[in-house]
Simulated assay, not measured.
Amino acid sequence: MSKRNASMLGDAYKSTKQPRHWSLGLVGSMKDPELIVKQSDRVVAIRDKYPKAKVHYLVLPQDDINSIYGLNKNHISLLEEFGDFYEELKENHDGATLRAGFHAVPSLQRLHMHVISSDMVSPCLKTKVHWNSFTTKFFIPYQDVLSELKESGSIQKISTELHKSLMSTDLQCNQCSFKPKNMPQLKEHLFTHVK
């Protein structure tokens, strides 16, 4: 076979090869030295590539755990290390109010805890679903997940009905009682809270 034919065959193979699904993107991101802010043998903290606030990190396990629903009592010390990372990230952002938590139905595979500032000012915050995933009970606080894991040995899934209800919750500012008509109005309003 000529080099040209071999090259064409290689190109044909590349074009038919399926790309990795976007939901697996965190696995690559957690190995990217440009994104890593801290890591240990068991845990890595990275900058979110599409931050939904001025400060937005993800804390992930080095082990392949799909989501909070893959956790059991053997993972308590791992989750406590997530908390240690959260505390250290808070120290690095004195003056910012940071929250840590998990999405009840994560869109990305690989367990990940969000550490996010309450300002919610970001060009990547675009939709009502983005907003509601961080400002309703869909965002399960870190301490609640750790407590449930210690008490029950697992995390209870939310119902499909509750998921839909939380995603369709009316918009409301997370810092005051303002109820905007749409996302552009909310995003403009959020700047009034920026110091």
Rank of each mutant, 00 (worst) to 15 (best):
I155D: 09
Q62Y: 04
A104C: 01
H56G: 02
E161T: 13
L186K: 05
Y13Q: 14
K17A: 13
S23T: 14
L108T: 06
V43T: 05
F85R: 00
S15V: 14
M167Q: 12
N92G: 03
D64N: 07
Y86I: 10
Q18A: 14
K187D: 02
P184V: 09
Y86S: 00
G70W: 08
Y86H: 09
F138I: 06
S2G: 14
Q185I: 14
S7F: 13
L166T: 04
R20P: 03
H112A: 02
G25R: 06
L186V: 13
E88Q: 15
P51Y: 01
G153C: 07
K73A: 11
S15T: 15
K73F: 02
V105G: 00
L162W: 03
N174L: 07
L190K: 05
H163G: 03
V59G: 01
H21T: 10
L24I: 12
L171Q: 07
V44L: 00
A100M: 09
L149W: 05
V59P: 02
R47G: 03
R42N: 12
Q62L: 09
E88L: 13
F139V: 05
L146T: 05
E151T: 13
I140P: 09
L111G: 03
P33S: 06
I76F: 01
K17I: 11
N132V: 10
N132F: 10
H163C: 01
L190I: 13
V44Y: 01
K38N: 11
A6R: 15
S40A: 05
H130Y: 11
I46M: 01
V129T: 14
M113P: 03
T16C: 14
L149N: 03
P180F: 11
G25D: 04
G25Y: 08
F82H: 03
M167W: 00
I68S: 02
K195Q: 08
Y142L: 07
L71F: 02
V105Q: 01
P61D: 05
L166M: 05
P141L: 05
S122Q: 04
P184G: 08
C124R: 03
D144H: 13
G70Y: 04
K187W: 09
H93R: 14
S29N: 15
V44M: 05
D63F: 08
L149Y: 02
E34A: 11
M8I: 15
T16I: 15
P19A: 06
K157F: 10
V44C: 01
I65E: 01
